[in-house]
């Protein structure tokens, strides 16, 4: 990341302005803007195909954008000279399908990036990885391979794997969508704990109850634009836009 960015913690940690993104002819983001302050937890909800997953993938440059601006701690992401690796050291991401490395144990999955990418001392990283295992309540599963763990357990390893890089922002892309209803809760509790500790979180989720309880701010997207946003209580109890109302009436 450029040392000369004048970012200070009172400015938005993640700031998106008029973001446009197309896949060929299909425009999936048609001018999305949002600001996320340090320590905030933001939930993006909306019908499938509304562009919400695409949007958070743009934040760590997994997708590029055609127009507009996204900054992370003042660093412009929509920049051809962007050092993507430096950006991604600051932005952790957890996926719907966990995407753990199947040939590595839970502990190795967590240790890999700090050791190989950040070149940190393996001993120190291992201590930290064991702490993280404890944090996501998976003591005893250190030496299990992903294939031996349940979906919820794998997802918690994936969260720990991301946290091991000590990111400033965490992106969660529908992380409970592939889980059994019983295991959804154990993952949500982990995320809630993170949010309460002050981690900046951006979540794409379908868990309305969770969003209401944990989020500082809710964004509702539909067909590539943000239709409505606000604090959870206002959003859920007093939605203004007919599309939001319709969506909420179907979900709740």
């Amino acid at each position: 990341m450029n040392a000369e960015t004048n970012w200070t913690p009172d400015q938005p940690m993640v700031s998106a302005t008029d973001v446009h993104k197309s896949f060929g002819e299909l425009e999936v983001l048609k001018g999305v803007s949002m600001d996320v302050m340090k320590g905030e937890c933001v939930c993006i909800i909306g019908p499938s195909g509304s562009g919400k997953s695409t949007f958070i993938r743009c934040i760590n440059a997994l997708n590029d954008i055609q127009q507009g601006s996204i900054t992370v701690e003042g660093q412009e992401v929509n920049d051809p000279n962007l050092n993507k690796l430096e950006l991604r050291k600051k932005v952790g991401m957890v996926f719907q399908q966990y995407n753990l490395f199947p040939h590595k144990t839970a502990l190795e999955n967590i240790m890999m990036a700090p050791v190989k990418v950040l070149k940190q001392d393996p001993k120190e990283v291992e201590d930290r990885a064991r702490e993280l295992i404890k944090k996501v309540r998976l003591e005893g599963k250190e030496d299990n391979y992903p294939g031996e763990l349940s979906g919820g357990q794998q997802q918690r390893v994936a969260i720990a794997r991301s946290l091991a890089m000590r990111p400033d922002v965490m992106l969660f892309d529908e992380v409970t969508a592939a889980l059994d209803p019983e295991t959804v809760k154990e993952v949500l509790v982990t995320i809630q704990q993170l949010a309460e500790e002050g981690m900046t979180c951006i979540l794409v989720t379908h868990e309305m109850g969770f969003a209401r309880e944990v989020a500082n701010h809710i964004y509702f997207t539909d067909r590539g634009i943000i239709v409505e946003h606000g604090p959870p209580d206002t959003f859920f109890d007093d939605a203004k836009d007919p599309r939001t109302k319709e969506f909420l009436s179907q979900i709740l």
């Binding site: 991604r88 932005v91 996926f95 890999m112 990418v117 991301s162």
Partner: peptide, 15 residues
């Protein structure tokens, strides 16, 4: 997805 997961963890393409 394995490529994406590694990219998101700041692995370079070679790594």
């Amino acid at each position: 997805a394995q490529w994406e997961a590694s990219e998101a963890l700041a692995f370079s393409r070679m790594q």
